Structure formats: C-alpha cells, structure tokens
Computed example of a mutant assay.
Amino acid sequence: MRIVSICPSNTEIVEYLGRTDLLAGVDNFSDWPLEVLQLPKVGPDLSIDMDKVEALNPDLVLASMSVPGMEKNIEALDERKLPYIILNPNSLEEIADDIETVGNALGEKQLGAEKAAAFREEVQQFRERAAEKAHRPSLYWEWWPKPVFTPGSVNWLTEISRLAGARNIFENEEEASIQTDWEDVKAREPDHICMVWVGVKESKMRPELVRRRPGWEEMQAVRENNIHVLEESLFCRPSPRLLEGLRKLKEILK
C-alpha cells in the first residue's frame, strides 16, 4: 500500500502505528520521525502540489482540515479522483479515534484498536495523577504574538493543561482559537507563559520580547521568569506526540 500524508500530524499518527514503511511521500513540514525526511516532498500543507501527489500513485492520501485553508487540498483531491480520508481532531479523544480510523484505512484494524486503547490508557493515567494535585497553576499559551492568538476551551492544549495539573487561562472561551490582545492576557495574570508560535522554531522565539511588552513587567510570570519556549511540534500538532509534550510540561511545572 502506498500512502501520502499531507499534514505533519497525520504522518505522526502513521508513525505511532509503526507503519511509516507505507509512506510514499509527505508534506514539506512533516519532520517526525527523522526517516520521513528522506521521502519525496509534495509541498507545504497549505499549498500541496497535487501533481506531485498524483505522480506518487497513492492508494490513499491522508488529508487534514486542522488549519483554515486546507479545504482547497480536498477540492483538488476530488478533482483528480484520488482516494483520501480527512482527519480533523480537536481533542485527545478525537486523536484516539483517528488512530483507529487510520489503522482501519491501512487494513490494520486490530493494530489501530490496540494503539488507540494504549493512547487512551496513557491519557487516563495522566488524568488520575492530575486529580491528586491541590494547586493548579494557570497557563497562557501563545500561538502567535501580534495579533495575539491563543487556544480556547475546544482545543487539545486546554486538555493538556488539565492533564498536567494546571489550567489554561482562556479555558472558559468557547472556541478552539481566540484572538485577543496583550492587555487581556495581562489582566488574567497567568502563572506561566508558554510560547509555542506556530511554524516557528524555538531558536527564533525570544522571551526578552515578551518581557518588554507594555505593563508585562508587573506580571507574576514575568517577575518569576516563568516564560517557557516550547517545541511547537510537541504542542501545536494534533497527534500522539502531544503526550510527549505533556510529559515535558509536567517537568516544567514541578
């Protein structure tokens, strides 16, 4: 079977299933596991080159709707009559469902069920440990600095926060992504600032710019130097690797 993944989180689900041997090509941003770097690239996830996808003669394309703008990829797949499935999870349970879905699509129904069960079990273990914590520090997740974008309640990072024994300061906002401003963040007084700028490597993110924002020097997180540059790849992709990010977050919050 020949699979083409056109979104990094899809590629990581295939890796979680242990079937990267089926990948014939991936999008330009797929970088895990390292072996996929050797595969043919079909373009950035928002600008997939469908000529390249079609040339790989896929039995299945793993598409996504996780980012606005990906709709045109689906339209192009339909036009070319290429076989595909769409993944679009917002929660950890939906990621577990997608593990099963991909397993079924690869003809590995039992494998998909077993790996999804293992994922759910690990999530449950984190949930039980988090329930034992008396103090829940507050977290501000910064997806983008200007304009400010941050996750709301309908997002895996709110779940990740809870599983780490903390809480997202925007957890009561009923959206997956919130556009706000620096004053609003300051007023919510987070204990920790987590920088996970989408598409930006950690080496390019500068905490000193956060400290210089008007009035932010008064914030507890800034005063106590609780500004954390985190791997975007472990927090911004709806894949099983979120649990690796969760383990790192728990270490930070000890």
Rank of each mutant, 00 (worst) to 15 (best):
K52C: 03
I99E: 04
E171A: 14
E189R: 13
V61G: 07
V229S: 06
C7A: 15
M70D: 07
W141P: 09
G152L: 04
P214I: 01
A118M: 07
F119W: 02
N104S: 13
I3Q: 09
S161K: 09
A24E: 04
E189A: 11
G245N: 00
E232S: 15
D51W: 01
E232T: 14
N226W: 00
Y140P: 02
L242E: 00
H228V: 02
V198S: 13
R19N: 07
L209N: 14
A118H: 14
A96H: 11
N73G: 02
Y140A: 04
E12V: 08
K248A: 12
A63L: 05
V123Y: 09
R129Q: 14
F126Q: 00
L22G: 13
V148S: 03
E183G: 01
A130K: 06
T150I: 01
Q220A: 08
R167N: 09
L139G: 04
L23E: 14
L34S: 15
A63I: 03
N155V: 09
R136Q: 04
V36S: 12
L22R: 11
E35Y: 00
I227P: 01
R241L: 05
G152N: 08
K41I: 00
D27Q: 06
V67M: 12
C194K: 06
E79N: 08
T180P: 05
P83F: 09
T101R: 12
E251W: 04
E100G: 14
R237N: 09
F29R: 06
D59E: 12
P89D: 01
L157E: 09
E132L: 10
M65Y: 11
F29G: 01
D51N: 01
E224F: 00
D49G: 05
E189G: 09
S138Y: 08
T11I: 10
R188P: 14
L77T: 11
N225L: 07
A176V: 08
W143E: 12
R213C: 10
I85V: 09
I48F: 02
E100S: 14
L60W: 12
E54W: 03
Q38T: 14
V14P: 10
L106R: 08
D31S: 11
P207F: 10
